[in-house]
Design a protein around this nucleic acid. Structure first.
Length: 573
DNA sequence: GCCGTTTTCGGCCCGACTGTTTTCAGTCG
């Protein structure tokens, strides 16, 4: 099993931490972190590319030295410099950096003075009150460390975007009640629509920040006020989620929104462009010789440095800045571009709503079509349909379509891809459907080559239309199965098959990087909810978010087409 | 360690808050 990009990135991150603790050149440390992020988000497996005789791909922030190091890691599974550094600075010190309040300097002190080499050492030292007497430490810091260790052990996980949205909505509503508040928006990775968020960053404008800060820390769900100031306060909610509130003057709104939306890498790049043009950019504005230039909106800030406004979903410093400079930012797909949903379930298998209720929910959204994709017989646990039950469902859909006005229910199925690559229903039944979604539900542990071949073989079936949740991952619960997605995408393009972008909040599969790879390879995508209830039809937003993060346009998505064109697009050549 | 509208050398984003401090280092985002 070749080494994954994530593992390569983890080595660079760990090395960066250790070098940081050793007080190495901070820009060198940053270079390793930047490279780690570039590798982590690169959509293709670098080890696979190298194994196929290709060079390490050119990545931003990865020069000759780091490319050589990546090559070495791929070939040997080791990073010699990391081994070397680890001899003087224990690798586990990298874990200590994950505790809030502990950075490289304090970790170094803990190691030098108390020989603390692990989280466990740290907890013991804090419990024995041996930390408070160290220079630069005190009682509060000691307690902070103790709390941090406890949290790291018990959770340390990020919140799914959908869950973060629920928290954000009620918090924003709570803050809106304050007099004198003008703008209020959740920025940060939430606004960039990352699939998970580590915390919430709320930005508000008001002439007087006092009342807003007071109401913020008084929010009923606050477990702890971590800091409170005039422009920034931080609380931790009972769920463990950290929330920041920043308040700036209205005149700073544009610059502040850019700044607090991030990402950090995007911001750094923006400021560097500013510097080259003689501007200083911070959260209060764009400055020239200490004088603030007018830039009340985000677009105005970008315009000052010669860039088009960049949609938040693209702000990851993955090429969007160059695209904005050259006027070639993609026109990203929007929720309102979608004409229908191509994956949902009903009570006939494991859904909770009836066929009629699902159809009504789709019609209420203004959709032209909704396809019903109940499970097939192999998926017994979900009450999958056999030939007979599916044919009966088809007849009921035909009858329903006679009565419906404005919405067409498409006849489909979520056909199980068996381990040998055959489909779970015979062609004689599949041909009665408008199209199919075909998915892997069992045999997730197959090695990459076999998993890939299984799916390729399934695609050879002329009734295979859309590959459902292509990687099988469940966010925070289950890793993607081992599979060569690029090979599958190339094959899908050749055969006229489509890949799903599941909007299911626990899946979001393809990932953003997967979406971008599909787009680059010219494979068509279907953004679908996999809804198991009428209410879940509304989850489509999360799939659109994910696709947008992958630079996907309406043109790349089949279900932006009206029904007649959709049918032509889904027909296999 | 990377990288180039002033550069192949010499830069590399910038401010707020806290705790431990009597003027600031460390951390964070």
């Amino acid at each position: 099993m070749p080494i994954g990009n994530g593992e390569i990135a983890a080595m660079f991150d760990e090395l960066a931490d250790l070098l940081d603790i050793e007080d190495a050149n901070p820009f060198r440390v940053r270079a390793y972190r930047t490279a780690a992020e570039a590798v982590r988000t690169y959509p293709k497996g670098i080890a696979e590319l190298v194994a196929a005789g290709q060079p390490v791909p050119k990545l931003p922030g990865v020069g000759k030295d780091l490319a050589d190091k990546i090559h070495t890691i791929v070939e040997t599974g080791r990073l010699p410099l990391l081994d070397e550094v680890a001899e003087r600075t224990p690798r586990a010190l990298s874990d200590l950096m994950k505790i809030g309040g502990l950075g490289p300097k304090r970790v170094k002190t803990l190691y030098r003075e108390l020989d603390i080499r692990s989280i466990d050492d740290l907890r013991k030292a804090a419990a024995d009150h041996r930390i408070r007497d160290l220079p630069g430490f005190g009682e509060k810091t000691e307690q902070l460390i103790l709390d941090g260790v406890g949290r790291l052990v018990e959770q340390g996980s990020r919140l799914k975007l959908s869950a973060a949205g629920a928290v954000a909505d009620s918090l924003v509503a709570h803050l809106r009640a304050v007099d004198g508040v003008r703008e209020i928006v959740v920025a940060g990775s939430f606004r960039r629509r990352k699939e998970t968020v580590g915390d919430l960053d709320i930005l508000a404008t008001a002439a007087d920040s006092g009342p807003l800060m007071d109401r913020f820390v008084a929010y009923p769900d606050v477990a702890e006020v971590m800091s409170k100031g005039d422009t920034r306060s931080t609380v931790r909610l009972r769920s463990g989620l950290t929330v920041d509130l920043r308040v700036v003057p209205q005149s700073s709104y544009g610059a502040a929104l850019v700044y607090f939306t991030g990402s950090k890498a995007h911001n750094i790049a923006i400021r560097e462009i500013g510097i080259r043009r003689g501007y200083k950019i911070n959260e209060y504005g764009v400055f020239e010789d200490g004088r603030r230039l007018r830039a009340p909106t985000e677009a105005a800030v970008y315009r000052r440095i010669g860039l088009a406004w960049v949609p938040p979903e693209l702000r990851e410093n993955r090429g969007e800045i160059e695209a904005a400079a050259e006027g070639r930012l993609p026109k990203l797909v929007r929720e309102e571009d979608l004409k229908g949903d191509l994956h949902c379930h009903t009570k006939d298998s494991d859904g909770r709503s009836s066929l009629l209720d699902m159809a009504r929910a789709a019609a209420e959204r203004g959709y032209e079509y909704l396809s019903v994709n109940d499970h097939t017989k192999r998926v017994r646990i979900a009450n999958g349909l056999d030939e007979k039950r599916l044919l009966a469902q088809i007849r009921r859909i035909d009858a329903l379509n006679e009565k419906l006005d404005g919405l067409v229910v498409l006849k489909s199925s979520e056909v199980d891809i068996l381990e040998d690559g055959s489909l779970d229903l015979p062609d004689s039944v599949l041909k009665e459907l408008d199209f199919t979604v075909c998915s892997v539900h069992y045999g997730l542990e197959l090695p990459s080559r076999r998993q890939t071949e299984r799916i390729l073989r399934a695609m050879d079936n002329r009734y295979f239309t859309i590959l459902g949740h292509p990687s099988g991952r469940r966010i925070g619960e289950r890793d993607p199965y081992a599979v060569d997605l690029e090979k599958i995408m190339i094959a899908a393009k050749e055969r006229g098959c489509v890949l799903e972008v599941s909007a299911h909040p626990d899946r979001l599969d393809l990932t953003d990087a997967g979406c971008r790879l599909a787009k680059e390879l010219g494979v068509k995508l279907a953004i679908s909810t996999d809804a198991h209830s009428a209410a879940a039809i509304g989850n489509i937003r999360f799939g659109v978010d994910q696709a947008r993060r992958g630079w996907v346009t309406a043109h790349d998505v089949v279900n932006t087409r009206p029904l007649a064109r959709l049918r032509r697009l889904l027909a296999r050549p």
